[in-house]
Write a protein that binds this DNA or RNA. Structure first.
Lengths: 414, 414
DNA sequence: GCACTTTGGCAACACTGTTGCCAAAGTGGC
DNA sequence: GCCACTTTGGCAACAGTGTTGCCAAAGTGC
């Protein structure tokens, strides 16, 4: 993205950065909250700076007091906690045969969800209309249920959003996005009850790759040539009048890992119709130069193996799916384990999570098989153990991760 | 490192960051220099901010004017250029049978070099003494040659350094390191002609892995158990009274790529006694959670392949070294190409560079073989081409990269 | 010769986190 | 019960950042 040598930082960026840091700690602290001195200790900022920052955040409604903690020999500290309802984000997952939409709050908790049959092979405009309708229906559900905002509000935040969707890159100034929808007065005027009341930040879209996260354009999804070059992000942003962020489904799920675990580096392995990976490296989702990283399935693990659709021989994906097809889950797990071990050794990965339909249908053999293989290898190399689990929230991992694409900038993640 | 959720940024950090950005652009501009307006455009800072920053850098002697550019319809801009001699850094490479030391300037250019036989298998204290002696001899050479500073100076910057070696992590405040040795007056007093005159920043040490970059401790290097747990960084820092940074040889070479190329992501593949990789991801060296990433050679590429020392079967390293041993460079290149293709697909790598004794002895077949395999794969997946080359400066890539371990923080890299 | 553009510096400014100071509110020893 | 001590958290003054407004210098182009 940044064609130059990275962005220069100004005072606004500095404020955004520190505010995001504080917000992240508040989110991680959950219901119990966290005290100002502890925030200061964890961020390295002075207590006074933390006071200033939390005061600003409280003025924007993102923060609230959460009672007093026990004293440790002096004035008892006041716990502060995130107000999850202060903002919301939408996650939208476009799968081959299903569209799913969720509404999540600032803490990442799902407060409303819908799904419907979907034809990814339909003409683009048609599919787009179906996706848009799903989002509108979700918002209508939420408004009716009183989850978001007070007024029922006609339509979807018409007039808000304006098209901030241009973000997506590594724009530092975007850190100020916290103020989006915030401020002192209701900016959008009438008709935008949802955006104003519940602070609707935008829509995160997860789709099968390959695609370009930076520009929001789909590439040639295997078997669906009509999407090649389609500017899905901008098309959705225009129709919904909301900021939209597009990413691969695997990356969306990986983003969920950044939030939940404290792992420095993790890999989400998705075994569905294909085999892909979402990588978390150094605490952030790694997308690669052309946002095309994660082609985990097409690593060659058997030189003289059977041919794969991709043109190579002995790809992990081909071998693994073949094992699944013949019902040999043990062998599929073994193969997946070999690929995972390669990954762990190459990237010094802390944590591996498995997902995707094939795995979720019967997780146990996969988790056990992969865990065993990695553990044996780690023991031989006297490396610390690596945890292997099914991805949390299973089927929802991708769509909720998609919503976090929108939330991530608030916490200086992404 | 940062056990918390990342460091909070203060004004000092902000200044350091922007100064580093400007310095990086100046270094990349080389002899020709770069004008203030262009710096402003590239960094996103205002012209006035750039003026302030460049004024500070010039006061520290890091910058100089480099004549006037042609006017584009107004006052002709003044070109600014880095003053390479303003600071120097030492690179030290500890190989199995040789120790090499270089002195490089700010631009990364080597101004002095030495090498000597070395026994990595000797007792630690003995080897340490040999390495220390090599550094001292290098500095004596440089002083005699008048390369660094004016005075000949007895010994090595005694009294300077003090032990700032504690850095190494992701400490933001360390960005202010530019001032180290700088300032207005000669801080160290007598006897430290080198550190004062030539601004000796420290020593970057490259050693065979595995090791811990963060703590500067060696792990169990295959075949050399006496080094396991040895705090090499601190031991050298104490003996030399200079800041020391320790890293794997592959990472040191990879750091050189960050500097020279403009590649967002690159991989340095080192085929020597073993097969390892140094990874540049997102414009920075990627080391992994325990700074142990880059085990490229032990990816399994043939399920039923021959056993490897590591305990697995069909490791790339075992296959590749076997091919080399039987003189079949074509097959070795093909195998290396398969591993490289796996890497490119997984991490969306821009650029691949080959190095290490085996490759450097006869680079052509390796470069051609690897390039062909990656190109074929990229074409099939309609991905942009990936450049494959021998690493620049060949034998010197590692040791000069080691020196850049010290320089990197000045340019907000590392 | 004049209008215009670009460069680059000076001064005032808005805003950041920091330091110094102090009131509030607990704990623990006496 | 009293008092010394510690910790919290806010107010005010401060140092330092990049930014804005303004202007002189030095070119180009008509």
């Amino acid at each position: 993205m940044s064609g130059a040598s990275g962005p220069g930082a100004n005072l606004t960026a500095l404020r955004g950065h520190n505010a995001a840091l504080v917000l992240r700690l508040l989110r991680d602290a959950g219901e119990d909250g966290i005290s100002r001195p502890e925030l200061a200790g964890r961020t390295g900022l002075t207590p006074q700076a933390v006071s200033k920052i939390t005061a600003r955040l409280r003025a924007e409604g993102l923060l609230a007091e959460a009672g007093q903690r026990a004293s440790t020999g002096g004035k008892p500290p006041t716990a502060l906690r995130l107000v999850p309802d202060a903002r919301h984000a939408i996650g939208l997952q476009l799968d081959r045969d299903e569209v799913t939409a969720v509404l999540v709050d600032l803490a990442g908790t799902s407060v409303a969800a819908r799904s419907a049959p979907f034809d990814f092979g339909a003409p683009a405009e048609e599919a787009l209309a179906a996706a848009t309708a799903e989002v509108r229906a979700l918002l209508a559900d939420a408004a009716a249920g009183g989850v978001v905002g007070g007024t029922a509000g006609g339509g979807i935040a018409a007039g808000a959003g304006s098209g901030i969707a241009a973000g997506g890159g590594t724009d530092v100034a975007a850190g100020g996005g916290i103020a989006a929808g915030g401020g002192t007065d209701v900016a959008a005027g009438a008709g935008s009850g949802l955006a104003a009341g519940g602070g609707l930040l935008g829509v995160g879209v997860a789709a099968p790759g390959p695609l370009d996260h930076g520009s929001g354009v789909l590439h040639r999804v295997t078997g669906f040539p009509q999407w090649d070059g389609f500017p899905l992000r901008d098309a959705l942003a225009e129709r919904l009048a909301l900021p939209v962020v597009l990413d691969k489904d695997t990356n969306a799920a990986a983003l969920g890992l950044v939030t939940s675990g404290t792992a420095e580096s993790a890999a989400y392995l998705h075994l569905g119709t294909g085999l892909g990976a979402g990588l978390v490296l150094g605490g952030d989702v790694y997308r690669g130069a052309r946002t095309d990283a994660g082609e985990f399935g097409h690593q060659v693990i058997q030189l003289d193996g059977p041919p794969c659709d991709c043109g190579n021989n002995g790809c992990l994906e081909a071998l693994c799916l073949a094992a699944v097809a013949r019902g040999d889950r043990t062998d599929a797990a073994r193969l997946l384990g070999i690929g995972a071990t390669n990954l762990v050794r190459l990237l010094d990965i802390d944590r591996v999570l498995l997902g995707g339909r094939m795995v979720l249908a019967d997780p146990e053999p996969y988790v056990r098989g992969v865990a065993t293989m990695i553990a044996e290898d780690s023991a031989r190399a006297s490396r610390p153990p690596v945890s292997v689990d099914v991805v949390e929230r299973g089927e929802r991992a991708v769509v909720e991760g998609a919503a976090r694409l929108v939330l991530a900038p608030l916490f200086a993640l992404g």
